[in-house]
Amino acid sequence: MTVDLEKVNSIIEKYRDDREAFIALLQDISAEYRYLPEEVIRYVSEEIEVPVSRLFSLATFYTSFRLEPRGEHEVQVCMGTACHVRGAPRMLDKVTQKLNIKPGETTEDKRFTVETVNCVGACALGPLLVYDGKYYGKLTQWKIEKLLEGSNDEDDQSS
């Protein structure tokens, strides 16, 4: 895979005087590509003269980083405590059964990536999931069914 390194250069430039800000730098790269491509990490390591091992270590330690491309849609099921006691595990089961993948994985057709998050701070609405940045609260298995199916035929998902 080849990536457009010009964007990377401008991100590197942004942190030129802030040599310890590796995490911020990786976050910006991650926001740009929606994951951390190996090629980019290696390139950044050369440019900022930091061992690749250190960047690789950071990329695997912090959960906001992914080394694999994400799917078109991101489904994050909240597994916070409030959601847990309100049935989040069953909701997660439903999502993973429906899409036939495990949390952290992407469907074969690259349409969905499912992740778990440790609380999004909307506990009054639990159990809930975040679908492409939008919160769907007071979930039921029916709602999940509709949400994930709705996106298949490009219908309005908010119904």
């Binding site: 800000a21 995490i23 911020a24 990786l26 976050q27 950071l58 330690f61 912090y62 959960t63 906001s64 980083f65 440790n118």
Partner: peptide, 8 residues
């Protein structure tokens, strides 16, 4: 401002 990377 430093943004955390996602680690409790």
């Amino acid at each position: 401002v430093v943004r955390g990377g996602g680690a409790f």
